[in-house]
């Protein structure tokens, strides 16, 4: 038996609904239809009245989830695409994120954002928004890269007493498979060493973990041992694991699929440089998407985002400097 990243997300939601009567799912087309990506397939039938279709009103959807969380429920809110969550931006960053700090009443909601690029999806169905949300105090931002993490981190997201932005990558939905669902997991806030190495640390997250792993494999043929750190959670950010890895390798490349201005990769470089400058044997480097909207045509799209080939090219630069 094998299970995909998308099936793991569905399975985690089924388990959350079964185990906790406070959990419900709200979003566009999530009910009888089972969601645009089928992440809630069959759940409305299995859990009557707890998987509810929303009107096309992202602001009000987020507001409703916040109110329900305030009243003690554990809503899972599905945005059809991460890109559309900008319409709920105010509710997320000003209402949900400030609530606990202002009133001492927690706001435990999980916001599922199908994010990231797939060929042909274009500017409005491809965005990575983890940077934007991580900027705001009061939010937890998770970016699972594996089937196992998609499952266990979604369950942990539902259990966390804060608003959690759960960035699930659409490119991984069908491609990524595991033999079985995990029975144990790292805590969501701990980074994972996805591959060990001694020559260079690549820090990355979400779908870019797989590009980095492929690049590391390519570089092995050239005699380099590259370590890959999967952040898993971009907020909180596990700086300790990153620093420990850089202490071993002396070299750092940060890879992200988001736009290049600021962001997670910049944050990681800033932390390593300011707290661990002496650990570095060469200037650290960042590799991000290009500073344009995400293009439609597959030729342009595959040049817009980092890929195994461009990650390997960037890695060689750091290795040779």
């Amino acid at each position: 038996m094998s299970i995909t990243y998308l099936e793991a997300i569905r399975a985690a939601q089924a388990r959350a609904l079964a185990e906790d009567p406070r959990v419900f799912i709200y979003g566009q087309d999530v009910g009888a239809f089972g969601g645009a990506f089928k992440a809630t397939k069959g759940l409305a039938q299995e859990f009557p009245g707890r998987v509810v279709d929303a009107p096309i009103s992202e602001d009000a959807m987020a507001g409703l989830a916040i109110g329900a969380a305030l009243d003690g429920l554990r809503p899972i809110l599905e945005m059809q695409f991460a890109d559309f969550s900008t319409l709920a931006f105010n509710q997320i960053v000003n209402q949900a994120a400030t609530l606990f700090w202002r009133t001492n009443v927690p706001c435990p909601l999980t916001l599922r954002l199908p994010c990231g690029g797939t060929a042909g999806s274009g500017p409005f169905h491809s965005q990575m928004l983890e940077t934007i949300y991580a900027h705001y105090p009061g939010l937890v931002v998770l970016t699972p890269a594996t089937v196992e993490d998609a499952y266990s981190m979604l369950l942990e997201a539902v259990a966390i007493d804060d608003p959690v932005i759960f960035c699930e990558h659409k490119f991984l939905y069908y491609h990524l498979k595991a033999e079985a669902l995990p029975t144990e997991a790292l805590p969501a806030n701990e980074a994972r060493i996805a591959r060990t190495g001694r020559d260079l640390t690549i820090v990355t997250y979400s779908a870019m973990v797989h590009e980095a792993l492929a690049a590391a494999e390519e570089l092995r043929g050239e005699g380099w041992e590259v370590e890959v750190v999967d952040l898993r959670s971009v907020k909180p950010l596990d700086t300790d694991t990153v620093m420990a890895s850089v202490a071993r390798t002396g070299r750092l490349l940060c890879v992200g699929e988001a736009f290049p201005w600021g962001g997670v990769t910049a944050e990681v470089v800033a932390r390593v440089v300011s707290e661990g400058f002496d650990l570095l044997d060469a200037p650290p480097m960042r590799l991000n998407a290009k500073d344009t909207p995400v293009p439609y045509h597959p030729n342009l799209w595959s040049a817009h985002r980092p890929t195994a080939r461009t990650v390997a090219m960037a890695a060689r630069k750091v290795l040779h400097s």
């Binding site: 419900f24 009000a60 507001g63 989830a65 916040i66 109110g67 305030l70 105010n90 000003n94």
Partner: peptide, 23 residues
């Protein structure tokens, strides 16, 4: 406890009413 952005509290009230019904 209101936020300053006008109209934003109505859907939060909806959410509480929705939760009450669900419970």
């Amino acid at each position: 406890a209101m936020i300053s952005h006008l109209g934003a509290m109505i859907s939060v009230v909806n959410g509480i009413l929705f939760a009450r019904r669900m419970r």
